[in-house]
């Protein structure tokens, strides 16, 4: 059966939830009254979502078939934007680099979040709430400030280099710490990690403690329990966290810009079309690249999550 991932904290995985049991409805009276109630309840949010989200998305897609002519965007229908993407290998290389980065960040976040969340649920009692909140605190201190703090840590004269020099581990400042893909990776992992910890924690928190006991009564050691009990039961939570981390990484353009060595990521090239090159139509066409990747990811994870939950 389906395992609810839901949490008092975020978001989570509507995508994985199989809607259950709607046999009963709140009001029994006449169908007409119920329809009216539905319109009242659902109407405003529906209008908002359609008018201010679905419509813009559709419009963005239409835009990708338009053109800049004489420094203005014209509704002149063409496939040129898409042709341009496939004419030069650079755009797909950038997409590939972004997908690799997003995958690395996501996998690393799982590797850190899972043991942390399991530790909190299993081995803490009095401090648990406080430690859980401590994961949230970084979310309330500005994303940009944290990115900037990493710049201070990783710079040539930064904290890490100074420390390593003083410890005689290195004799020259390591320049590759900052303005490199490593720096982008570390920073992204740091800023998005809480988005992984929260759903994973919520999922593990929902596992009945008796399962852990049963597991160890049956002689399973830590690793075995983790693999056979925690992982499958926490899986929907892990998938939920993965979607957030993967998606946030795919779309970020500020961290690569501040921390990277100029290597472009999909977010950068899209943002540049809107903020620098003034080629909205080409930017709209480029934005279909991460959308296709995410559509595949969402479809797969939805199926995967559902299969695991059965």
């Amino acid at each position: 059966m389906f395992l609810p991932v839901a949490t008092s904290y975020p978001m989570v995985s509507y995508a994985f939830l199989k809607l259950t049991d709607f046999r009963r409805s709140l009001t029994r009276p006449l169908r007409r009254r119920q329809s009216l109630a539905l319109v009242l309840v659902l109407g405003p949010p529906l209008l908002w979502i359609v008018g201010l989200y679905v419509l813009p998305l559709t419009f963005l897609f239409l835009y990708s078939f338009w053109q800049v002519i004489g420094f203005n965007v014209e509704a002149h229908w063409t496939l040129d934007n898409y042709r341009q993407i496939f004419a030069e290998p650079v755009w797909l290389q950038i997409l590939l680099r972004t997908v690799v980065m997003a995958t690395l960040v996501t996998v690393s976040a799982i590797a850190l979040a899972l043991p942390l969340a399991y530790f909190l649920v299993r081995y803490t009692t009095r401090w648990r709430n406080l430690l859980y909140l401590a994961v949230l605190v970084p979310l309330w201190s500005s994303y940009l400030v944290r990115v900037f703090a990493w710049k201070t840590i990783l710079g040539s004269d930064g904290v890490l280099n100074t420390f390593l020099l003083d410890a005689h581990v290195i004799h020259q400042p390591v320049e590759a710490f900052l303005y490199s893909n490593y720096a982008v990776f570390i920073t992204l992992l740091h800023v998005w990690l809480p988005y992984m910890v929260l759903p994973v924690y919520a999922a593990i928190d929902r596992i009945p403690p008796s399962l852990f006991e049963a597991s160890s009564d049956l002689g399973a050691r830590g690793w075995r329990t983790m693999r056979s009990v925690v992982w499958p039961l926490a899986f929907p939570g892990i998938m939920a966290g993965s979607i957030f981390v993967f998606s946030l990484t795919m779309g970020d353009f500020i961290t690569p810009q501040l921390m990277g060595n100029g290597s472009q990521f999909v977010g950068n090239v899209i943002a540049d079309q809107f903020g620098v090159a003034f080629n909205y139509p080409f930017g709209a066409a480029l934005s279909t690249l991460p959308l296709v990747v995410l559509a595949v990811f969402l479809t797969v994870s939805r199926r995967f999550g559902a299969l695991e939950a059965l």
Binding site: M11, Y14, A15, P45, I49, L52, Y53, L55, P56, L57, F59, L60, Y63, I243, F244, S247, L248, M250, G251, D252, F253, G267, I270, A271, F274, Y280, G283, A284, S287, P290, L291, L294, L298
Partner: peptide
């Protein structure tokens, strides 16, 4: 309804910007 947090912010941003 859930899409705006499943898709990256940049998509929401540029879609609304064009619209």
């Amino acid at each position: 309804i859930t899409l705006p947090i499943l898709l990256p912010g940049i998509i929401t941003g540029i879609a609304m910007l064009t619209w």
